[in-house]
């Protein structure tokens, strides 16, 4: 199928992108790697009047360190994230989860920022961003602002990025010693989206879990933190993981669709959370 016609602006800088978005606002769509947007355009499920291509904005590319944070440019491709030693060393959960995103060809084009800004609840990276306590740097006409992960995912396919704004980069706190991680993705075939995914980072000291952050994929219109599990894990040893994981579906209202009905998703969330946390805790 064939996209409807649109105007095209290749932004040379964040400022230029913001300026065009300011002028065209709701009629504009930001093009990152295009791996979600272009299929939507082809199916004519999206009809922008103008597409603002930020794929070549230099400052939006690459992974760098900034003190206790990693900073990942929004246009860094999934393949670049996977290949990044910095990411693997300091945010291994992201490396692991990104390897499960789509397929190699899509990972060559698709971007970290594009996936997060698209905010598909079945996408793998939003839940990972939650578990990693990411901060999102958003540029608009009034300058730049930083939004914490908990405030970024607003609703189904909606984020804190306004129509005249661009997600520039994502800041991730480095995980130091004692942290373990696991992304448990459950899907029917290699190509299909996660029915449920669980992204867990767990910190252990003196044999017990003192901190855990767990993000849930596809358990609602936005990615969710499994807060009840996190609380139950605090201070628990590995033998308490099973009981804690029973809270994984608390306060969730997942969709019923071809992938699974809500009750099945809730069941999966509990099983996968137990497995993810056990693996992350080295148990």
């Amino acid at each position: 199928m064939i996209p409807a016609a649109f105007d095209y602006v290749r932004a040379g800088s964040v400022d230029e992108a913001v300026r065009v978005l300011g002028e065209r606002g709701e009629d504009a769509k930001v093009l990152a790697g295009g791996q979600s947007l272009i299929p939507l355009l082809r199916l004519r499920l999206s009809y922008p009047e103008v597409v603002v291509d930020v794929g070549r904005v230099e400052e939006m590319h690459g992974v760098r360190e900034d003190g206790e944070h990693l900073v990942i440019g929004a246009m860094t491709t999934h393949a670049e994230v996977i290949d990044s030693d910095l990411v693997r060393t300091h945010c291994g959960l992201l490396s692991e989860a990104t390897e499960t995103v789509a397929d190699p060809a899509v990972r060559h084009r698709g971007t970290f920022g594009g996936s997060l800004a698209h905010a598909d609840p079945a996408g793998d990276l939003p839940a990972v961003a939650l578990a990693l306590d990411a901060e999102f740097v958003i540029a608009g006409s009034g300058g730049r602002r930083t939004v914490p992960a908990q405030g970024f995912f607003v609703d189904y396919l909606q984020t804190a990025v306004g129509a005249d704004e661009v997600l520039v980069e994502v800041r991730l706190p480095k995980l130091g010693a004692g942290w373990g991680h696991r992304y448990e993705k459950f899907h029917r075939v290699a190509q299909s989206w996660a029915i449920v995914g669980v992204a867990a980072v767990v910190h252990r000291s003196n044999g017990s879990i003192d901190q855990a952050r767990i993000g849930l994929t596809n358990m609602g219109p936005t990615p969710l933190r499994a807060s009840a599990v996190e609380q139950a894990l605090s201070g628990a040893d590995v033998s308490g993981i099973g009981a804690a994981a029973e809270h994984a579906a608390d306060d969730t209202s997942p969709a019923s669709d071809l992938g699974g009905a809500a009750d099945y998703r809730q069941h999966l969330a509990r099983v996968l959370t137990r497995r993810a946390v056990s693996a992350a805790a080295g148990g």
């Binding site: 093009l31 899509v106 060559h108």
Partner: peptide, 16 residues
């Protein structure tokens, strides 16, 4: 292959 890396050419715009 686009600059040596596999891509799905149905999901890339020619302008990209």
């Amino acid at each position: 292959l686009l600059d040596g890396k596999s891509v799905k050419s149905c999901s890339v715009l020619a302008v990209q």
